[in-house]
Design a protein around this nucleic acid. Sequence first.
DNA 1: TTGTACGCGTTATCAG
DNA 2: CTGATAACGCGTACAA
Lengths: 338, 338
Amino acid sequence: MLLDDSSRITIVEVAQYAGVSTATVSRVINKTGPVLPETAAKVYAAIEALNYKPNAAARGLASRRTNTIGLLVDEISGEFFQPMLRGIEVTARASGMDLLISSTGGMSQSSPPYPLGENNTDGLIVFADSLPQEELVRLHKIGFPLVLLHRSSPSGLNIPCVTVENKEGARRMVDYLVEERGYRKIAFLEGPDSHEDAYWRKLGYEESLAVHDIPFNPKLVSLGEFDETQARVSVSQWIKNGLNAEAIFAADDDSAIGAMAALKESGLRIPEDIAVVGFDDIRLAAYLDPPLTTVRAPIEQAARIAVEQLVKVIRGEEVEAMTLLPTELVIRRSCGCC
Amino acid sequence: MLLDDSSRITIVEVAQYAGVSTATVSRVINKTGPVLPETAAKVYAAIEALNYKPNAAARGLASRRTNTIGLLVDEISGEFFQPMLRGIEVTARASGMDLLISSTGGMSQSSPPYPLGENNTDGLIVFADSLPQEELVRLHKIGFPLVLLHRSSPSGLNIPCVTVENKEGARRMVDYLVEERGYRKIAFLEGPDSHEDAYWRKLGYEESLAVHDIPFNPKLVSLGEFDETQARVSVSQWIKNGLNAEAIFAADDDSAIGAMAALKESGLRIPEDIAVVGFDDIRLAAYLDPPLTTVRAPIEQAARIAVEQLVKVIRGEEVEAMTLLPTELVIRRSCGCC
DNA sequence: TTGTACGCGTTATCAG
DNA sequence: CTGATAACGCGTACAA
């Protein structure tokens, strides 16, 4: 069923109804240029009476602005995703922007043409490694507004980015495990190596070991991939091979969940037999059994800030090149405390 | 920084470069109308060489189609949300549609003007109670493509809808608890009453009780609200008041998680002291301790189908008025089996 | 099979 | 303060 053409109200109808020109209607709607209060009132009345809604496409064409920002993610998965999307959606809406979303990964490892770009948005939030560097470079070169989330700018470019203190968070976590809990055999479930968060978290782990004169042992590192299932498999494998560790530091809470499942499956008690800690402090962390000690990352806040930055960039304002949000240790029972 | 105007490639530049008219370029791109293979090749070459991307706004204006579908949700939260969004995004992308997303609730209990509608999308997926009935009626009256997800059509309208067999699933779950496990004192954590899934699930619970001659006891019903925190509070309250039940049926897995947390907090063992079951089979259900017995709802599949339906409606094809997806019992340890 | 030219609904630049 | 009117980039009859 097609849209009823008779019910198609345009700015022309509104102008006629209000007895003014279309230019005036436009001025009233967009608050651009001066209009007599009484004239404006007539226009508003007409808009109300006719239930007029400006056509987004026509607006975009004429103003060269889509009033839309795009969110590019690699995949819609993980507990991480939800607070991020919430932050982005709410902030975009509050800024009067629409939100177009697309996942680049999943099937085709993001090859051109990319679904979001200068042709349909005013700017893009690019999460982690959801867009190949070449496209990032191209967009940046034509001056297209970009903000990176949970990744840093390719060197030379200087695209604004917002992320969290991954390395410091990871380091403090391991510091705590060593200094307060007395562990020295700490295994690490690393994230996907295409993901920058994963890189920094691992570095923090290594740095803390070094500081405490604990030799880095490759056998104590396995792939968690920010994914429950993968983590579960890796930990099961460890156990089968006779893992000799006092604690497992999972690079994110999703993999911590998988690790805990594998340990329990083998009859190991947490934290009596082995401690488990994570990173992110997803909503479920406190509900696990035992509650998960982790590093709180302000995911939603980072998302909000990214959108705010992007809106500024779109408006031509200056923004800081890099925003690093602090992380915080959250001690619960899974690490053996209390 | 503004977009470099010199780098603005339009269909005109492509036509010139290829030595054809803009009409031909348009025909090639949209595969509308016949074009000689060699001509098409020249056009493709030009597009490639100039890195041309059609302007979405101009397209929308000229064709009267935005090539975009909208997703309206009340709030971005709950484990339920993610598989749904994934299904919608993937299917939309596969159908060549962009995805605009907006949450109506949260702050203002969705009052006009609504962010998504006939002015910026070709059709809408409306989740649960994310849009007031009056707006639903208005959109339907002007013939705007609509598909409802996890709710049914207001009577009289007949808007296509996709949802799962909530009542049957809930009924079978309670049947199982009574017949196989022998429980008769079964408490129920109901969902928000604005949510249709919640309504049907409760009805299934009541029906099963009736079938088994178990009197409905209002004291055994409390608010879970499809939310961990609320469920936890409600269950804690029950415990304080001396709840006398053998099992708790949470209307969704989120509230089951909250319930389990509250029970453990009070030192109650699951399922030895009290059984807990949920509804949805979210990804985490299998990872809980003990693993959660629940009703599997094909959330992602429902989302996919909704998009497919919507695309058909947009194309003017017929679709079934109501699609009911089957649910399935998933027995794990939290119910006391095994 | 291809080209010409008009229209889509707004915004923005002019005069007035 | 307000009104004509020329873009905006593309799709699509209509002609050729």
